[in-house]
């Protein structure tokens, strides 16, 4: 039984534009993810109509602004690496990571002061939706960190930075999800108190 091991890395897909395939794949992944988020969003309205319970408006607004801001820094990081401005890119990635962490801590704080528990229906949808979203934020932070480490080790340039732009696209996607989730959980409809 001949076992031939080669460190070959046979050049797959030679005739194809790898970058293009990756990009399309990433977009399809977002498309697929948005169904998950969409189903949860729909479930929220299915269960509660437009009702919601009291949540801390100030905190909600602050973490929303932070997350939106992080999209700006992420975008700046991507533009910077496209122009080979590695220092700026590095700082902007760090800023994004920091803002992402603050956002996650904010959500955690919101959980700890919530006036509803996870058994009742608003608690269920609130914790699930913010939880799934926060999981994505944390994943994004880890990815940004790995990208930052590689940048520090001298990888990426204006010609080769798909890992950076892919991660940044992912970050924007997670932001866009929050743009839908924030009003659905914090702004829309009538405030009801449980037990009514």
């Amino acid at each position: 039984m001949a076992v031939a091991a080669t460190a070959a890395a046979h050049a797959h897909g030679h005739a194809h534009n790898r970058l293009q395939l990756n990009r399309v794949g990433l977009w399809l992944f977002f498309f697929s993810e948005s169904i998950v988020f969409g189903l949860l969003l729909t479930s929220r309205f299915f269960l509660m109509g437009v009702d919601r319970e009291h949540v801390d408006q100030q905190l909600g607004l602050i973490i929303t602004i932070i997350l939106l801001l992080s999209s700006v820094t992420a975008f700046t990081a991507e533009t910077a690496i496209e122009q080979d401005r590695r220092r700026l890119a590095s700082w902007m990635l760090l800023a994004t990571i920091l803002l992402g962490v603050i956002f996650t801590v904010g959500v955690g704080f919101e959980w700890s002061i919530a006036e509803f528990n996870r058994k009742e229906v608003f608690g269920t949808v609130f914790f699930t939706m913010t939880g799934i979203h926060a999981t994505h934020v944390v994943t994004g932070v880890i990815m940004l960190f790995l990208v930052w480490v590689q940048l520090k080790r001298g990888k990426f340039s204006s010609r080769d930075h798909f890992a950076v732009s892919g991660t940044v696209m992912y970050w924007h996607f997670v932001d866009v999800v929050w743009v839908f989730y924030y009003p659905a959980l914090y702004l829309i409809g009538n405030v009801v108190t449980p037990g009514q």
Partner: peptide, 21 residues
């Protein structure tokens, strides 16, 4: 596992949600 109430009718959940999804 987390004691949530998507399908617990006593706390406002709805078993039909599952069937739709």
């Amino acid at each position: 596992i987390a004691g949530m109430g998507f399908f617990n009718a006593d706390d406002g959940g709805d078993p039909l949600l599952y069937q739709h999804v």
